[in-house]
Amino acid sequence: MQFDPEFFTESLFSPSAPFLRGLMMTVAVSVISMTLALFVGLLVAMMARSRFFALRTVAGLYVWILRGTPLLVQLVLLYMGFSAAGIFAFETVSIAGISIAGAVQAAVVALTLNESAYVAEIVRSGLETIPKGQVEASQILGMTAISTMRWVILPQAIRTMVPPLGNTFNQLMKNTSILSVIGVQEMFLMTQSISSATFRTFEIFCVAALYYLLLTTIWTVIQWYIERHYNHKVGLPYEIPLVSSTVRVLRSGRAGLARSPREETPKEVLTP
């Protein structure tokens, strides 16, 4: 086996500037696409619940097509297909002094469209978990359908939506690697170019794998805290894996070593 441990540790702990730029691109495209997809997906989910047949149909077609075709096909169609047919071409634009390549714009649009179809389905099923009694309680207080959604249904439904939304964001982060086919300089493409320049393919892809793992791990931890937030909002307990039990062990350990004065005070003294 050929393995260069020096190259590996160097790439892992002090990655080159191009690799870091790729990492930043991966994070930025993921976060921006997910954020946009949340809004678009919510809109599509609302359309799917509309009174109007036309809106429901549009929403149904949207989800059907975007979930039923591969992201890779959508991406290439959007970036290369459309311009080849002379319909639309993404060109480099400059926003606040930062120039954004056409491929990056196409990537964000494609990821947002694709992701929003999944978000719409998660929102739809999340809304269905809210009992009918909540709608009736809003109705008898004179709330409109929109304010019932805004103040009663959505805040509760979000709790059930967080785990599946977190799951699809995890997938989205890893799916950014296919953006390399249209030349977006994200982490996978950067890894590939380092690999072809150094021939250390095994080492550098192990490093890339570890960085993807780091990203999804960080997200998992963030997701725990988001889940806890929404559980506490409805007065339910939430155990953060590892952390909660560790904190408990530390606390009880300390209490065992040095009892607090209050605990030593006999009960009779406290009650006059």
């Binding site: 909540q134 309680a137 207080l141 004179g142 709330m143 103040w151 509760q156 909002k233 409805v234």
Partner: peptide, 27 residues
């Protein structure tokens, strides 16, 4: 017309007080 349900139907994400003042304020 006030209505009190068999199964309460309070809003679980709001405190007791917020359940009470929510509609007077928002509606």
């Amino acid at each position: 017309i006030g209505f009190v349900f068999q199964s309460f139907n309070l809003f679980p994400h709001m405190s007791a007080a917020e359940n009470v003042w929510h509609a007077p304020v928002r509606v």
